[in-house]
């Protein structure tokens, strides 16, 4: 199937099997390896990307559902002002340990702040509930959201 979509700001025409997972397309065809596979069943959030600005798990998306979509991976978000703020906040909060879940959390935090520029405690917990982290116990990730909210005031 020929699929037209936008990937990290560039228009692409994919010629792939319509059942191929976005996760495999990103990692194998485009070498965008910030998108990690932790479970392959939408439970862990390690493969999270933005699709039309919303956080989604790339392992659950067949190529056929990409038609006309705009996909952003951590690689495509890195140099944005919001990306830089989230990076700073994660480092300062001590929210990175093994790091396997972290790019997914970056996507989740972006999506969360996009929806709630001044999130409540409940918003933060709920907004990150699609991402598993086994190292940190989440507290420092919560803190990073607060730091990003402060440091990036006006950006979201």
């Amino acid at each position: 199937m020929k699929i037209e979509c936008t990937l990290n700001g560039q228009r692409k025409t994919l010629d792939v099997s319509s059942t191929r997972r976005l996760l495999d397309i990103l990692r194998e065809d485009f070498h965008l390896t910030a998108v990690k596979e932790g479970c392959g069943e939408g439970e862990c959030g390690a493969c999270m990307v933005l699709m039309d600005g919303k956080a989604v798990n790339a392992c659950l998306i067949p190529a056929g559902n990409l038609m006309g979509k705009e996909i952003v991976t951590p690689e495509g978000f890195k140099e944005s002002p919001r990306g830089k703020i989230i990076e700073e906040a994660l480092i300062e909060a001590g929210a990175v340990q093994c790091g396997f879940c972290t790019p997914g959390f970056v996507m989740a935090i972006e999506s969360l702040l996009n929806e709630h520029p001044h999130p409540t405690e409940e918003n933060i917990r709920e907004g990150l509930s699609g991402n598993l982290c086994r190292c940190t116990g989440y507290q420092m990730i919560f803190k990073s959201v607060r730091l990003a909210e402060e440091k990036g005031a006006g950006l979201w």
Binding site: T33, A34, E75, E87, L90, G99, T102, P103, V106
Partner: peptide, 24 residues
Amino acid sequence: KSINRTDAKGKIWGETPYLGDIAF
């Protein structure tokens, strides 16, 4: 007194390769 982790940035952006990210 806490310092920033030296490996954080590469992990945040998925640039630090795990086994599955290495091309053989």
